[in-house]
Design a protein around this nucleic acid. Structure first.
Lengths: 130, 130
DNA sequence: CCTTGACCTTCCAGTGACTGGAACCCCTAT
DNA sequence: ATAGGGGTTCCAGTCACTGGAAGGTCAAGG
């Protein structure tokens, strides 16, 4: 199968798939014309990657998950460990983002947003006592 | 004032301050020895930047905000507009992250995490019907 | 057979916002 | 004189792609 079809089926741009080959996440064979020839298994792997990336796992997480995925004898605890780590990171990011959101929403709310130059947003940024 | 002191007072690493000079956010003078010589105003500006960046504004947002900040006659509506845009972006990101969190938490919860190879996390990643 | 257009290939460069490191200069204290 | 802790520049790397140029390949239509 050519890269374009794989891209459609895995839900990843061709550029990204080539990049994944560059960094060794997939290793498609080559046809006589030099085109990459993907197997069903490759498609499966790439779809796995697409989903894991969509869940915010880093490429290195994905590499580890793929290795575990392909290891028949892995323990589920290893996978759980990676996922839990990632979950904790997401929680931290969520908290930070929520904090940012609250502060910003407060500022936007306080700003009258008219033609006058006074602006609570800028005042706050200028001296972070808000 | 030298870059180290400014870094302490503005809450930014020296490297970052040099980078901000590179991209034209600040333009400190130079002493006879070639060292950057920062004024109080520079410190103020950098602290402004530190705060705005901490609120997740992009560098280009910051550039715009700084310009508005230094423009005595700006309308607060312009600032509000930038802030509202940014707030909307944050909200979107929050929603995505929350969605990711929910899915992942569900998977982690479903995984027994023992020595056996069965793992709902990998199963889900492999075929996204979960 | 030729052309057209869609596909494929490689390689290089850019993104955003820094960060690390090398190699070197300057200032102060001992 | 020397040791250290500043400062300077510049180059390269990060992360995960993405855009674009230059060129090869393939199937369909005239």
């Amino acid at each position: 199968m050519n890269i374009g079809d794989v891209a459609d089926r895995a839900g990843l741009p061709p550029k990204t798939i080539r990049y994944y080959e560059d960094i060794g996440l997939v290793t498609p064979h080559r046809g006589a014309n030099g085109y990459r020839a993907f197997t069903e298994q490759d498609v499966h792997k790439l779809a796995f990657l697409a989903r894991a990336r969509a869940l915010g796992f880093t490429i290195e997480d994905c590499r580890a998950l793929l290795a575990l995925y392909e290891d028949e004898s892995r323990a589920s605890s290893e996978v759980k460990h990676i996922a839990e780590d990632h979950l904790a990171q997401i929680d931290e990011k969520l908290a930070q983002l929520q904090q940012m959101r609250d502060t910003l929403a407060h500022l936007v709310h306080a700003c009258h947003g008219d033609d006058r130059p006074d602006c609570p947003i800028l005042s706050d940024l200028a001296c972070s006592k808000g």
